[in-house]
Structures are given as C-alpha cells and as structure tokens.
Design a protein around this nucleic acid. Sequence first.
DNA 1: GTGAAAGCGCTAACAC
DNA 2: GTGTTAGCGCTTTCAC
Lengths: 321, 321
Amino acid sequence: MAAAAGVARSTVSRAFSQPGRLTPETVERVLAVAERLGYTPNPVAQALSTGRSRNIALIVPDVANPFFPPLIRAAQRKAEENDFCVFLGDSDENSDREQQLLDRFANQVEGILLVSPRLTDAVITQFAKRVPIVLVNRDLDAVPRVLIDSGEGIEAAVDHLKSLGHQRVAYVSGPTGSWSNGQRRSHLRRAADRTGISIISIPAIKSSFEIGKKTTPKLLSSGTTACIAFDDLLAQGILAGFAEAGVSVPDSFSVVGCDDVLGSTTTPALTTVSNRSELAGDVAVTLLIDKLRTHAIRDARHVLSTHLVVRKSTGAVRIPT
Amino acid sequence: MAAAAGVARSTVSRAFSQPGRLTPETVERVLAVAERLGYTPNPVAQALSTGRSRNIALIVPDVANPFFPPLIRAAQRKAEENDFCVFLGDSDENSDREQQLLDRFANQVEGILLVSPRLTDAVITQFAKRVPIVLVNRDLDAVPRVLIDSGEGIEAAVDHLKSLGHQRVAYVSGPTGSWSNGQRRSHLRRAADRTGISIISIPAIKSSFEIGKKTTPKLLSSGTTACIAFDDLLAQGILAGFAEAGVSVPDSFSVVGCDDVLGSTTTPALTTVSNRSELAGDVAVTLLIDKLRTHAIRDARHVLSTHLVVRKSTGAVRIPT
DNA sequence: GTGAAAGCGCTAACAC
DNA sequence: GTGTTAGCGCTTTCAC
C-alpha cells in the first residue's frame, strides 16, 4: 500500500488518522490509492499498536428479558456514535458465567458495561481495577454507575393503592442479589411504614411469565387485595393466572408491575412503574467513553428517577376490610 | 513474563496454546508464574499474529423486536462454547446502517452473521467475498444460510381457517425487502389457490404493536372474517385494536400471528406459526464456525420447518358467507 | 510535510 | 522439549 502510493508507511497511517498534518494532495493521493486497492487500516494492528481497540463489552443477565433489549439498543447506538463496537455477553442470570464473560472480555476491550450484575461486590471491585467498568443497577462505591431508582415509582404505587382502599399488599419479589430487587423491597418497606399499609412478601426468585402465573394461588390465599410485582413479566403472568382462575382484575384484585416494558399490551393494561432502561444504556455508555477519554477517576453515580404509570390493572377494593 | 519464569517467550506461548508439546513441569511452572503475575495472553496480539481474532459479529435489524433476542442468546451461547466472542450490531431496519455495520465489522472479525438483512443481494454478495458470512432468513445462492420456512405453518393456518368456515382472509404484511415477508406472502398465495380461499393484502410496512392496532379499522371494512399477520407483534396490536373496538376475537374475527414470540401471554392466547429463531441462531453460528475451520466453500442451505400452533384467537365464522 | 526505525505482544518456522 | 528469530500491520518518536 505504502509502496503503491509512493509514500512511507507512516504517511499512509497519517493520511487516515491525522490528515491535517499532511499536504492535501498527499492525503488525496493516498486515499485514492487505498480506494483503488480496497485498503482499509487493520483495526487489530491499530489496537495492538495504540493499546486502544475502540471496543467495549456489554454484559446482561438475559437478552431475552424485555427489560434489556432497549438498553442494549441504546448502548450500541451510542457506542457507534463514538466509533466504538460492542461485544455482547449473556450471563444467563448466573454469576459464574458472568465472571467468565468478564474474564474473556477484560483484556480485549477498553471498557465494560455491567448491567444488573449478579456478582459479589468484591469480585466486581477486583475487575474494576483491571479494566474500566460502568455498572447499571448496582450501587458500588468507587465504580461509576447508573441507577434506575424505582423508589419514587414504588412509593407512588403504594400511595395509589392506599387511595384505592387497599390495606394489605403483597410484593412478588425478584432475583436475590439483584440490586433492583433490594431497592424495591426497601422502598416498599419504607412506604409501608409511612402509610400504615402492611406488606407481605412472596418470593418468585426469577422473573418469568410462567412463574408469575404460578404465583396467583399464593396471592389469593394471602389475604391481600393487591400486589406489586418485581417486574412486568411477573405481573403479566399474574394477570394471566387470575384470568384463568376467573378472578377479575382490577375488580377483585389489583396488580402493579415494574419497568413498563409491556406498554399497554396486557389485558387489562398494566399499572406499572416507569422504565428508564433506554436512557440508562445511553448514559452508561457516555459515562464509560468519557472515562476512557479523560482517565478521570471521578466516582460518578447517575440516578434516573421513575414514576407511576397508572393504567387499568388497579382499582378500588371491592370489600374493604 | 518469560524472564520471570526463566523460559523463552515462545515457551510461554506454548504453555498456553499447546501445553502438550512441553514438559508438564515446564507448563506448570509457567502457569504458576503467570498466575502470580496476573498474566494473561493478549488476545489482540494473538489476533494480529495468527490472523484469527476468535470474534464474530451478529447483525440484526432490531434488538428490541422479540423475534431476535432468543436468536441472539442462542448465537452468543454457541459462539462462547466455541471460544468465540460476539459483536452485536443493530441496523434499525435500515440498509444503510446495516452496510455501515458490516464495514466496521468486516476487518475485525472472522465471520459475520447477518440476520434478516435489508441489503440488496449485490451488496451482500460483495461483502461475502471479503469475509465469511452466514445469512439468516435470506436466500442467496453461494452464501451459507439458514432459513426459517414459514411455508408449512402458513399453509396449515389457511387450512385451519378454511376448516373453520372462513372464505376471505386478510394478510397484514411485513417489511418490504424482508425475505420472510416475501416467503409468507407467496405461500399464502399458493395456499389460497389450493384451497379456494381469497386473500387480500393489507400493508403494515413495519412490525409493531401500535401499527397492528391501527390496522383493525381496515380489517373491519375489508370484508374478511380472519387475518394472518406478518408477525406476533402486529397480531397482538390487532387483538388490542379489536378489543378496544368491542369486536370479540375469535367470535367475530379470527387472528393468526407468526413467529410465536408471545407464547400464551396475549388475550386471547394467539394462534400462530411456530418460531425457530433460537435454533436458527444456534445453527447459524455452527455453520459459520464450521466454515472458518474447514474453509469449505460448500453452499450450505439449512431450512427449518414450522407448524401451526392453535390457541384461542381463531374460531368458526359466526355468519357463514 | 514526510521518512526511517523501533516497538506493541504474540506466533511460527527453524534450529539445536 | 525449548530457544532464536522474524514477522503480523500499525503508530510514533525522532530526524531531516
């Protein structure tokens, strides 16, 4: 290539990376020859030489969980805008696999976006020393993070239910070790104290339509008149379970979801806590790339607030207790 | 590292890549020192040296369309099993962006999985010369491809509707330029000829819940008693549109989806054509990696068959015409 | 403004 | 079985 253009290898390099330092004619000539020869700088060689690969990795617990695709999309888009490519890893909600992915990516990318990680604080902190990491939905000191704070939404949900006359509410909980689950649970507790509503907890372990569906009998025998589910998937399952059991929602039971990933597609349309996953992906990538550029070690902590989206799955209690 | 272990650089290399050629003691010693020093082979340098990066790219039209996440998941899993990492690109259903992604990935990966591409045959063929490509849902000679053949499912759907007494059926079509859409349309036409049922076409351009919803008025005034939608998302929107309009499904109108991405989560549960996207992702990666290993230029064409999944959104016509 | 040369971290002959 | 050496394709001082 250099020979074909009658210039030195370094000139070719500059023609692509810093054309300003070259005579316009030289740049033009080099680029023309490159075009003719179908030459493109080899990114792998560039990466080796500069130490910067222009690649980042994104690790999520489950690509198929509707919460993540919008985040992935937004992250990929933002990365692309900054001329970065993104690796995707699916940990399958499994901390071992998550760590494995982290290992595979660590020395191949400039930074990693770790979304809703299941790993322990210690392990994450360890990795964060090796490679720039930005967390989504995990609150760890000294690691830049963006948090979707369901707090406001959850508290609003409790207020909403109270205003409808509900006294006993069930929380169908999510994955243990998930920051979001802990956060939702604690806000629920706080709201309960504040409003005098009593909250009982029904574990679901993992989020899925089927699991939600199987939860309905427990809900029915729990003495509650409403529930707040860890996420919309569970809520949707609960809706289906009730429909099958002939329990009318919201007339006989009120259901609140979380994350608003289903929009108005459920029957009845789900009252839920708003979702900011798209924005989270966008902000997280910005944070990461910013960190790469400035090498600043500032302890960024970006909190995204939420609100309650009232639709049709919540209503007044039929028989006030 | 080599110095610290008291061996040559090549020995370190071999300790990791071909430990069989070394004395067990040497391997052990090298690995021990590596462990102590936190040394890991640099994949970028490996890639430059060997010409193989152990990376592949996956390009999809829309990560957020529920058809793709299971495919992405399966592909990533299979790649990982073969020790490959995967780049993800979202083309946003846009052929220009798709080409851009292709360009960015082409000289950075060993092969590319192009899913439901919107690009022209010519462009794809061109790229396929530069880098190994495997297509999903695009039938192009000389490029390995895996096709989800909705044919059987579609024909079964028409038979099913006919057996329920339907005479006029609408097809709510999908993205122009999509192979799947063309394939579904042509099978529909074939089935129409075979069964004597008449098919009219209602364009939807893009697949989404909202668009589906907006289609219902046209459906209602079309003189049909049933419809087959390009995919489940549209079908779900149609269901919602009917519910809102007070049209009972399946009593007054029957709805068939395609791809079975929603399972039984809709109300009523959607009759649909089965989906093989997970398998498609798995097979496609296998094909690609196989191609990389063997360098065989065989013209693989993998067809995945489908069937009709009858649920609750289809029923007998109320007033036979 | 452009060239020469060293080096990024590794692998792959080729010797011994 | 292990060491030596020459690249892989680029960037980057340092000269000129």
